[in-house]
Simulated scan of single mutants.
Amino acid sequence: MMEIVVAPDSLKGSMAASDAAAAIARGWSRVRPADSVRIFSMADGGEGTIDAIEAASLGRTARMPITVMGPDGRDVDTTWLLLDPKAPRRSVAVVELANTSGITLLDHPRPLDSHTYGFGQAISAALEYRPCELLLALGGSASTDGGHGALSALGASFVDAGGRNVGLGNAALARIAEIDVTNLRTIPAGTKVRILSDVMSPLLGPTGAAAAFGSQKGIEADGINDADHNLARLAAALQPSLPADPMQSGAGAAGGTGFAMIAWGASVTSGAAEIAAVTGLDAAIASADLVITGEGSYDPESENGKVAGHVRRLASAAQVPCALVAGSIPGAPAPGFFVRAVALSDLAGDVRSSMNDPERWLHVAGSLLAEEFAA
């Protein structure tokens, strides 16, 4: 009998991490029913982070409903998470950007005017409970606004040369002449704020928020430099009142929201590492015979703070083989990274077919891996 650990991320916009893990596990168990298969819902600060923390907290949580302004200005009914709600001074609040200002909330990309205002509204609501710790899950953003929207919702004022509010979105950053933080909400004494980041990129430059991730949010190739310059303008304008290093690791997370939150007073940590520790994945891997991880699309960025890369490193450190199941694999993983890499798009014939029925193809992938390892 083998002990298998299945720990994938969600397939963004297609299937939750818990459902993806269950489908892979069912596929494995169909071929090898006697094996022990343990399921872990993973996240890295992006979509599904609250779900993963809630699942690992054994009922000691409360979902807090809230209506916020979504990334395109429409209302979004969502929730944030409160851990240990009966012990306010020891409670932990978790606010997820993906479910307040995330790209899956858009009907179509709005690269230059989408924003993070709703994320700031949810943060403000969470602060009312004066938690001892506030976790900000950054990932899956719709915008590249540098967190300007979130700071606006927290009370900062961004005006142009004529004293008018510049508006929201990346394009608005080009008009910033002055920032007033007089009414910016401060972090309460006794509250620690940590960013759970899905990437460790800086805010600016060739590996920054615009250059590395802008195209994913709809910014055309000829607009990347302008978007980067707009972020630089925001960073320069913030320096007198909220000094922060735009080149710090994690500043580029969630379209640069990491930078705004760092400037506000938050520290940065790896979202994937935090979720792995909370769920007990680290310990489970140590006794496993095989680890299976996965995500929607495995590419070079997957090794830069994403779930698949982190789980692979945990398995490697424990000297346990690790297999990958991903919706698509645009480029082959580095030699030796995984004992086997399975792309659902290859199994289904193309990306669209795999996305139309991900549960089926995850089940097939689990069965395929079981057959290969049985042999």
Results as ranks from 00 to 15, higher is better:
2 M>S: 15
3 E>N: 10
9 D>R: 02
21 A>I: 04
22 A>L: 13
29 S>W: 13
31 V>I: 04
32 R>E: 08
33 P>H: 03
44 D>N: 07
48 G>M: 09
50 I>G: 11
53 I>L: 03
56 A>D: 01
62 A>N: 13
64 M>K: 11
66 I>G: 03
77 D>Q: 12
77 D>Y: 08
88 P>Q: 10
90 R>C: 06
94 V>D: 07
95 V>C: 09
95 V>A: 07
98 A>D: 00
102 G>P: 03
103 I>E: 05
106 L>Y: 06
110 R>H: 15
119 F>V: 02
126 A>N: 06
127 L>Y: 01
132 C>T: 11
133 E>C: 15
143 S>L: 07
145 D>W: 08
147 G>H: 06
148 H>A: 14
153 A>V: 07
155 G>H: 12
157 S>Q: 15
160 D>E: 05
161 A>S: 15
163 G>L: 09
166 V>A: 01
168 L>R: 10
168 L>H: 06
172 A>R: 00
172 A>L: 05
173 L>M: 05
173 L>K: 00
181 V>W: 02
188 P>L: 03
189 A>F: 07
192 K>S: 15
192 K>Q: 15
193 V>T: 08
193 V>Y: 07
194 R>N: 13
195 I>F: 14
197 S>F: 10
197 S>R: 08
201 S>N: 14
202 P>T: 11
213 F>N: 05
214 G>D: 08
221 A>L: 12
230 N>F: 07
237 A>W: 03
237 A>C: 04
239 Q>H: 14
248 Q>T: 14
252 G>Q: 07
257 T>R: 01
266 A>S: 11
270 S>Q: 02
275 I>L: 04
279 T>W: 02
286 A>W: 06
287 S>R: 14
288 A>G: 04
290 L>G: 13
292 I>F: 06
296 G>V: 06
297 S>M: 04
299 D>F: 15
301 E>A: 12
303 E>C: 08
306 K>G: 02
309 G>L: 13
312 R>W: 12
327 G>I: 00
328 S>V: 09
336 G>C: 12
339 V>L: 07
343 A>F: 03
344 L>E: 10
